[in-house]
Design a protein around this nucleic acid. Structure first.
Length: 505
RNA sequence: GCUUCGUUCGUCUAGCGGUCAGGACACUGGACUUUCUAUCCGGUAACGCGGGUUCGAUUCCCGCACGAAGUGCCA
């Protein structure tokens, strides 16, 4: 489901480019390529850009950079939209698609050509390769030598070759340095002598403009979309000076740049499918809640003192670019899971129940109703079964993900298989009478927690047993496991009928 | 090779010239006699190396090492 595309950018080149470079409002953007699912690294950049805009009551723009025809797909663009929505990164404008802005880019290239800020270059790819090889062999930096700059043509003795379509190159300044104060990394400067004349439009007959290239489109887009702060991954640091030069050539002051550090896999390698740093959708499917993902992602490279657990709202309130660390961070799956558990614990039960329900269904506990605190329709073992809310209440502190919580809830629906050896460890002649007594009491006692607790306590005193001697056999019979919630809570959740059916003395 | 950026416990980080270098995850010890994969309390564990500057460097400067990115008619 693709949102409607909005046209962006007027056709009056000059007036547009030269004037409105004062940004009153903060406008950030996220500009992914639709070439696959978003991984944690990408989405974190989006999160930071979004949080910055929201913090300043600014706007957040989504731009899809779909000019790589071979790898781009609509499905992937839809996936991006879906993931952002799930995380709560609401967008104010867009998505804009670069493919639909080609005319605009060409218009600007044509203008630059006319103004002498760009020129045709007939050097073939083969020649370029040869040139670079030679430069490398001589221990020089491989770069285009500017031979087709109008003033150099004669010097190089060049003639326009037959049947070769020229590319258009940007005339980069020869001297001086390009410098900017990166909002994350601080002052950075690069000598123009390190930069060469980059191709801004691919081959096309003279008089036409070929397909424009990335570094150029980005600048035109950021100008047209009035982006005030470019928050992006630090893989773009080396593009920045080139882009700044293009901004200036177009008569526009460049925006503020903030380059966020890379996220590495837990092994320290770059994030990729193999590292388990899988797509966001898979975290959703594993029972992670978006609040926890936002929290964890933000905490990877950003900090607000010693705050570890915070809500998306708090992130927005506290966020600033200066508190980003400039160094790369490793993804820590264990900490993410812990964080997820913390967010689950803090969530209102009803909300938790609502989110748990699909996971219960997926686990095969289909009949779970959505809410309420009374037993509802018959479950898989033939008894009225607990609601999602009751289960959430019972297990919220014991499961780090919704999926694990659903798995833990098994005994709420299905009679457990009780291992005889395990039971024998906890049930013996010493406590058997007590358990029998408890069962008797449970047949008639009020099914409320204080009453249930009282029965259990009475059993201890009446039979002079230690607490575990009463609790453990019940726990095992009720759940099939020695690790389970408090027995009174279990009884309450499971219900009288089901509980009695499971207690065998 | 060249350019740019980076380097605090295993991991994420706080620190912005004087701290017993703090917190969190993980790990580990204990407590909770309603178990535990829960909860509470405790513990182990870090400033990459070498020079400066300074009364004093984790903090500032310079080298080195290591890592990352770039060096495309990819984005």
């Amino acid at each position: 489901m693709r949102a409607p595309v909005r046209a962006c950018g007027p056709t009056k080149l000059k007036s547009r480019l030269c004037n409105e470079n004062k940004f009153i409002v903060v406008r950030t953007r996220f500009a992914p390529s639709p070439t696959g699912t978003l991984h944690l690294g990408n989405i974190r950049t989006a999160l930071f850009a979004w949080a910055y805009a929201r913090h300043h009551q600014g706007q957040f723009v989504l731009r899809i950079e779909d000019t790589d025809l071979e790898r781009s797909s609509e499905a992937s663009a839809d996936g991006i939209l879906r993931d952002m929505k799930w995380l709560g990164l609401d967008i104010d404008e867009g998505p804009f698609f670069q493919m639909q802005r080609m005319d605009r880019y060409r218009e600007v290239v044509a203008q630059m050509l006319k103004d002498g800020r760009a020129y045709h270059c007939y050097t073939s790819v083969e020649e370029l390769d040869a040139l670079r090889e030679k430069q490398k062999a001589n221990n020089e930096k491989p770069r285009y030598d500017g031979r087709w700059r109008p003033e150099n043509i004669a010097k190089f003795g060049l003639e326009v070759p037959e049947g070769v379509l020229p590319v258009i190159r940007f005339r980069n300044p020869d001297d001086g340095v390009v410098a900017w104060d990166d909002a994350v990394k601080g002052h950075i400067e690069i000598a123009n002598s390190e930069l060469d004349d980059l191709v801004i439009a691919r081959p096309a007959p003279v008089g036409e403009v070929g397909v424009p290239t990335y570094n150029f489109c980005v600048v035109v887009d950021d100008i047209d979309m009035k982006i005030s702060h470019v928050v992006r991954g630090d893989g773009h640091v080396m593009n920045t000076p080139r882009q700044i030069n293009i901004f200036r050539a177009l008569g526009v002051e460049p925006p503020v740049f903030g380059h966020t550090p890379t996220v590495l896999g837990s092994d320290g390698e770059k994030l990729s499918k193999r590292h388990g740093a899988t797509g966001l959708n898979e975290y959703a499917a594993s029972g992670y809640v978006p609040e926890a993902i936002v929290n964890g992602l933000a905490r990877l490279g950003w900090s607000h003192g010693n705050e570890e657990i915070f809500t998306p709202q708090q992130l927005v309130e506290w966020f600033n670019l200066e508190s980003l660390t400039p160094s790369p961070a490793r993804f820590d799956a264990e900490k993410f899971e812990w964080l997820n558990g913390e967010h689950i614990k803090r969530m209102p039960v009803d909300e938790l129940a609502k989110r748990l329900e699909p996971f219960l269904k997926e686990a095969g506990y289909d009949a779970a109703p959505s809410s309420g605190d009374q037993l509802d329709a018959a479950g898989g073992d033939g008894f009225a079964h607990p609601t999602a809310t009751m289960i959430a209440e019972l297990l919220r502190e014991r499961a780090p993900t919704l999926k694990k919580m659903a798995a833990l809830a098994r005994y709420c629906f299905v009679a457990p298989e009780v291992d005889a050896a395990l039971l024998a460890q906890h049930l013996n002649e010493g406590n058997r009478p007590a358990i029998a007594w408890v069962k008797d009491q449970l047949a008639t006692t009020d099914w409320v927690k204080p009453a249930l607790a009282a029965v259990l306590k009475d059993a201890q005193t009446r039979f002079t047993l230690k607490t575990p001697q009463v609790m453990m056999p019940l726990r095992v019979m009720l759940t099939g496991s020695a690790q389970a919630p408090a027995v009174d809570a279990l009884l309450l959740t499971l219900g009288r009928e089901r509980s009695l059916a499971r207690i065998h003395v």
